[in-house]
Design a protein around this nucleic acid. Structure first.
Lengths: 166, 166
DNA sequence: CCTATGTTGTTGTGCTCTCAACTACTAGGG
DNA sequence: CCCTAGTAGTTGAGAGCACAACAACATAGG
């Protein structure tokens, strides 16, 4: 118990600020998307990943990985998005177990409509408050945390090759 | 539309890494607390704030603010925590509308039991992956983001007095 | 071919959260 | 005193999520 690796004062303040800031940020993004586009952030991400895929089409497990969702969560999400007509399910000839999720034209239109407001929110809530040089540090921190928590999701940064001195 | 302030490549990569890392971090913390202590992170925070208050007692609205919850969320949470016997409601003599939430002995015991594992998770998932100097930067970033999104929650950093040169 | 094991995806249950509506009270101004 | 605003807190309905159980299929080894 008392031999636990407790947080010192600086770590404690940092953790509480990070927790409060993250919560405020994600709640506001969710609220903005729900209000202006009728979807939560998690669904927006699903549409984004599909829109970046060849033929707007991905296997469920791959989409789940890219969108940072569990299989269960994605399955529920696709059910909902299909009801809205933004995504369609297609079965998979190569693998009898598999299924594809496909972005529809309506889904792409919804994404196109939602994007500007969402990006503006991300900018004003996250990037505008930052100082010079913070972006690079924040990126390195986030990638390190992600690599520690979910190595399978980390975007391998050119393994074996370091950026030049500058 | 096209005149929106889109993200450049560095910002895009930073945002996606931050999003993925935060999600992975909070989901793992939630999972760990739920598994080992039978409560989600949000409830843990309620218990923490109560345990730090005089007489383990806070007005609902103040507890909501400190725990970063809406009134509604806190009310539901306290209902649940009261069912578990970890928190009790007391009415407020000074204000007929008001109510106090009070931490019980059982609640404190639950918190005491949950704390070491939770702190260990925070350390291993967030602080261990950081490099020297990252904590200070992360703290500044988090406080800036919080101040932008929720000025009412920001922990005013000695207003009017800057730290010395070093 | 047949079986054992792993993978893919879905579903149902229960919990937490949001949102809006509501009650009950306080505070301030005529 | 009365009336109007504003504040404190609760509630109910609906949405998203985690978890575990499950069905269907693939794959590898004999």
């Amino acid at each position: 118990m008392s031999d636990a690796r407790w947080l010192d004062e600086e770590e404690q303040a940092t953790w509480r600020a990070f927790l409060a800031a993250s919560r405020a940020l994600f709640e506001e993004l969710d609220r903005q998307l729900q209000r202006d586009a009728g979807m939560p952030l998690a669904y927006y991400e699903v549409l984004v990943r599909l829109s970046e895929a060849p033929d707007w089409r991905l296997r469920m497990h791959e989409l789940a990985r890219l969108a940072g969702a569990s299989r269960s969560r994605l399955s529920h999400a696709v059910t909902r998005l299909a009801e809205q007509g933004w995504v369609a399910r297609r079965d998979c000839p190569e693998d009898g177990r598999g299924a594809y999720a496909v972005l529809t034209e309506d889904g792409f239109a919804a994404l196109r409509t939602a994007a500007p407001g969402h990006v503006e929110s991300v900018r004003s809530l996250l990037f505008d408050p930052l100082e010079d040089g913070d972006v690079a540090v924040l990126r390195r921190i986030a990638e390190a945390v992600l690599a520690a928590a979910r190595p399978d999701l980390a975007p391998l940064r050119q393994p074996g090759r370091e950026p030049p001195i500058a």
